[in-house]
Simulated scan of single mutants.
Amino acid sequence: MKYLSTGEYEEILDHVSIEPFNKEFDVNSFDCGISDYNDFLKHDANYYQEKGISSVHLLIHNDSKDIIGYFALLTDAFLLDKEEKGEIELEIPFSSVPALKIGKLAVSKNHQEYHYGSFILFMCLGYAEALHEKGIACRFLTVDADIEFNEETPRFYESNGFDRNLHRQQKRKKSVSLRYDIYN
């Protein structure tokens, strides 16, 4: 992850906590600048959690109780072609590999004093590693980086160590599929 060695994540940890989404938090004050992402938190997150579609987590400022950001996680599997498997020395007779998917990730436009987005990615990596420690295979973090609102979104993930998925890459119009290899 991009800012791991800078000490910034330790500074962030001093004033935030990660909480599971619940209706008691004031989600109406959250604004990341993209209405679709604001609306997800306000209108869809609870339903998605109740129905087992994704697990939503909030990055909360310990003092103000502001929602600094949020992320949604869900299980995933994706395909690697022969060349991609060769690049990471993964000798398996199938193309499908297990992953933890970042379904949504957003940071409040009012909280830009740290690289909270990169910190959230680091936290997602921790969730993926926790699955592995519990005996659940998870080799990658994946994300379909939304380019509908910002064409530069994939660069944020790539700057944090994600690679583009090439296997049968569809002609996507609204997202770019990326992966982060937990083992590398």
Rank of each mutant, 00 (worst) to 15 (best):
L58K: 03
D181C: 01
L141Q: 05
F140S: 08
D66P: 02
E19W: 00
E113K: 08
K51F: 01
V143S: 08
A130G: 03
F30T: 13
A130E: 14
Q169I: 02
E133A: 14
H132I: 12
T6V: 14
Y3E: 07
Y70N: 10
G161Y: 03
L100Q: 12
V16K: 04
P154E: 14
D39Y: 10
A99G: 12
C124K: 04
L58D: 05
V56G: 06
D66K: 02
I147W: 02
G103I: 04
I53V: 14
D44A: 06
G33D: 08
H115V: 10
M1T: 12
G52Q: 09
L141H: 01
P98M: 03
S29H: 10
L178H: 00
G126V: 13
S17R: 07
Y70I: 12
D26P: 06
D66W: 00
I12Y: 08
E113G: 01
L121D: 13
I120H: 03
E133I: 07
I68M: 09
K51G: 03
V97T: 11
E133Q: 14
N160L: 06
D26E: 15
F25Q: 12
I136R: 13
E50Y: 00
L79S: 13
I102E: 10
D81Y: 08
L121C: 10
H61P: 00
E87T: 00
F149G: 06
E50K: 08
E152T: 15
I12W: 07
L121K: 11
K109R: 13
E91Y: 04
D163L: 08
V56F: 00
P154C: 13
A145N: 11
D163T: 08
H61Y: 03
I88K: 06
I68K: 05
S17P: 00
A137L: 12
K174P: 06
H57C: 14
I53M: 12
P20T: 11
D31T: 11
E113L: 02
P20L: 12
L166P: 03
F156K: 13
A130M: 13
Y47H: 07
F21G: 05
D39S: 15
